[in-house]
Design a protein around this nucleic acid. Structure first.
Lengths: 154, 154
DNA sequence: TATTGTTATACTCTATAACTATA
DNA sequence: TATAGTTATAGAGTATAACAATA
């Protein structure tokens, strides 16, 4: 019944819509608040303490210069520390400061609460369907190749 | 089984992931290509010929100055026309040019094709679940109040 | 020489505040 | 006066190209 093309259509209109809501929920532009991409970096670092820049940019799906600048901002805000280990001075290590952890948790809880409030409009069964679908989408779109297909061939 | 909080978590990691893929698929930054927000405006205008700026910014969920600038860019590229009707010089009318229609269709078809190719990794039943879930999410997140809740109270 | 990261540059995206023009 | 839109300003997000430093 539902063809891939139809799902693709739905995706094309729905994802930016939800993304916009997410952004607003996090009140991105307000000074001192966290943007969605920043939030993602904080979450990643909370799970991978000491990761280097390439790790982060690969996982988030952004180019390294982009990530480098973004980390600048996070360090400036005091949410992330950056360290050059003497044993391998090429690979910087990154991690969350105490402030960064607090900010991440607070943003996550707030966003979860608001998202949950919106999802509460659905029945339990519908929510299960949504959860299941998001799971599958996450798997499908996690294939890094998709994101990296435009990168330079050597 | 799946609580709203869990779905919210999944949402928080999945939506930006898919959004990034979408952006890359459209190869946004490449000169002459369409960005995702631009694409959304083109789609909206293709369905609402002659809409005014407030209509567009409300629907897309952006502030009017933001949309005004974005429309500037679209007009500059020759994809959108802007007209001040003599009968009400305050409400500009916006619409797609022939070029704009072509660009929109081409971008839509290309994106659909690529999304469909990724979704093809799922079984027919899984795709049906995804389509159904996106439908519900679209309904839930279309409540403009959610997006507009930060706007100034008069 | 290949890899890691940064700088330089140039856009787009997004917001708020202040303004102009019109109804 | 209230509404529609633009300009001014500021900063984040994103990319490519060119570079520096290190392994």
């Amino acid at each position: 019944m539902t063809t891939p093309l139809e799902s693709a259509n739905r995706l094309l209109e729905t994802i930016p819509l939800i993304m916009g809501t997410l952004r607003h929920e996090m009140r991105s532009r307000r000074p001192g608040e966290v943007s969605v991409p920043q939030f993602r970096v904080l979450v990643f670092l909370s799970l991978h303490d000491g990761a280097n820049l390439s790790d982060v940019s690969n996982h988030i799906g952004l180019m390294r210069p982009t990530m480098s600048k973004m980390v600048d901002g996070l360090v400036r805000r005091g949410w992330v520390w950056r360290r050059i280990p003497p044993e391998n001075r090429r690979c910087v290590q990154l991690g969350l400061t105490a402030d960064g952890q607090a900010v991440m948790k607070q943003a996550r809880d707030e966003a979860r609460r608001r998202m949950a409030r919106m999802l509460a409009a659905l029945t339990a069964e519908e929510q299960a369907t949504v959860g299941c679908a998001l799971d599958m989408l996450c798997r499908v779109f996690s294939r890094r190749d998709g994101n990296a297909s435009h990168r330079k061939k050597k």
